[in-house]
Nucleic acid binder design. Structure first.
Lengths: 337, 337
DNA sequence: AACGTTGTGTACATCGTTGTAAAGACATCC
DNA sequence: GGATGTCTTTACAACGATGTACACAACGTT
């Protein structure tokens, strides 16, 4: 059976509080006593019970990161960043997959688990500002991403409009004139898709290119298969595009698969650019040009906000942070030559 | 502030125990009382404090899955399976990244977090049987993978030797004679790499092909870059291979990238097969042949073992389960023609 | 009238930990 | 000798939930 502080106290012949003092590094413990207790701790392999510690009002050293789908590389890579950087705060990160389902997301922010953790970072898909406001749980919360930019909580995002704009401007600079977009979500307002679409249209306007609704492909999710399917439809058009901006890398890789399978050369016939800069894009053939959000910075900013929030007395003003991105040009948009 | 059972009791004008009874569905609560309590519960948005419940000896409904690297697609996909299937038991899965570091793995199995969870599933990289035996924590534990097949705990794995054997036999059946292997780990005994190497050699023997140590490439990790680097070295040989068995898909995709970049055709010049069947291999060009472990079955078996172990009185015999795999032939090993 | 049965509610102790308060030991100072 | 101060250790309560034990009513049954 796992040893409790009481067992240790009995073995060392001191009170439980003294053991607690040793465990927590309280300074006024006689050297001899400390040693005695330490021996007992080691012999019994004592591990503090985090449930008890937490119940007593303390910290567990755990924070949770909730993402829609862990098998989506962007989220996996982001999660890895969090795990890595959280060490600087002495935190362990538990990852929670919500599958983008409202019930799961609500459960997460409403505190089912938050009685166990010190802080919470959520990348929401279905949650609305109303849910956030109705929240009673006081566990420090930070939101990631584009949804819910106006909810009264700390928030980290990137400038999606500018990112999309940069991607499409890059395609236009290559001399492409029929630039398609894969990833719109007409039925969801205010999300990532809407912002990237806005950037797409903005870039077309600036490049004095016509906006052709037939070149904008809607999708239900942001997976490879969606990109592959959308690309099929684009190639079946009377006038297929000569470039495609995909709203994420996964769809771009699916699109490239379709293009190559149908005998189109990338980038010669059709240039492709994605968004997210997942590792896969560095090893695909061709390698994938993309808009690279600074994932490390996102994680760093979010952790800092959680940290501040844990320290903060009451309800300081919600903070808004924006992480950088950069355009990464690889083979899939290499200039002809 | 989050409402406790006490707040609810005060509001409903009953004792805390009565509230507890309502929450837990105890049958002998008068309809009127139940309704009163329910109203108070709803109004206050009560959520049970899992720390307290757990401390008292109860369940939290949480289990943890610890994997080395969440950004490795195999683990991400496996984790997603666990999350999905755990619902059948009413469990929520928390994912924990150990980075394959001994300290992290030890911390996980020795119970730092297990005071918070009902069960634990670990895919170890560095842990040894000694650590498992020294474990004092009684949280039900199930191990995944090939390491530690002899530790006294429940265990789920696949037949790696047979899987590797099938992959290499497939290459031999295509008429390939110089079949390389990427992924050996000479300094680690008993792990995945050793077993897959064994299967490789077994298949060569059966196909009456010579074993050429120069064709076996060691790696430190199982990432894309390792596969790409190893492939470079193989192509620099006097007599390069005409087929490659990579010990996982990620390295296979890295190897394919190198091959294509250096002008080799896949599969015509060099056939490539991997292991794991990650989704990425269905969308790469060429699509990737692979040995596909039944991830759903792995998750299902592991969850069943944890479930049994939670129910089991004391220490029932450790169980050993083996999940199936199948050979998936795609473009990267398509017969010439 | 005495007793059991069934249903409904409550008081209390407990899980492991740590903050608070306070007690004891010893030294120092006037 | 008594007051003061510095260490060192301890007893106790509390965090929130729930199992145990019991009180009390309402209803039979003998």
């Amino acid at each position: 059976m796992a040893a409790s502080i009481k067992d240790v106290a009995a073995r060392a012949g001191v009170s439980v509080k003294t053991v607690s003092n040793v465990v927590n590094g309280y300074q006024f413990v006689a050297a001899g006593t400390r040693e005695k207790v330490q021996r007992a701790l080691d012999e019994l392999g004592y591990r503090p019970n985090l449930s008890a510690r937490r119940l007593r009002g303390g910290r567990t050293g755990l924070i949770a990161l909730a993402v829609p789908e862990i098998r989506v590389p962007y989220f996996a890579e982001l999660a890895a960043q969090f795990v890595q950087l959280a060490k600087e705060y002495g935190w362990t990160v538990l990852i929670d997959e919500t599958q983008g389902a409202l019930d799961n997301e609500r459960e997460v922010v409403e505190g089912i688990k938050s009685h166990l953790i010190d802080g919470l970072i959520v990348s929401p898909l279905a949650l609305t500002a109303k849910h956030i406001e109705a929240r009673r749980d006081r566990t420090p919360l930070v939101l990631l991403g584009e949804r819910l930019t106006h909810a009264p909580v700390d928030h980290v995002s990137i400038d999606n409009v500018a990112g999309a704009q940069a991607a499409v401007a890059h395609l236009a600079d290559l001399g492409r004139t029929r630039i398609a977009a894969i990833g719109s979500q007409p039925h969801i307002s205010g999300g990532t898709a809407a912002l990237r679409l806005k950037g797409y249209r903005q870039a077309l306007r600036r490049a004095r290119l016509a906006y052709d609704p037939a070149l904008v492909m809607p999708v239900t999710r942001f997976h490879r298969a969606d990109g592959a399917r959308a690309m099929q439809a684009l190639l079946d058009l009377e006038q297929p595009p000569d470039a495609v901006f995909c709203f994420n890398d996964l769809m771009a890789l699916g699109a490239i698969r379709t293009l190559l399978a149908r005998g189109c050369r990338v980038p010669q016939d059709v240039a492709v650019i994605g968004f997210d800069d997942i590792e896969e894009g560095q090893f695909s053939t061709p390698t994938l040009s993309t808009v690279a959000p600074d994932k490390e910075q996102i994680a760093r900013l979010a952790l800092r906000l959680v940290h501040q929030r844990i320290g903060a007395r009451d309800d300081a003003q919600p903070q808004e942070e924006t992480a950088d991105f950069r355009l990464v040009v690889r083979e899939s948009t290499a200039p002809a030559g």
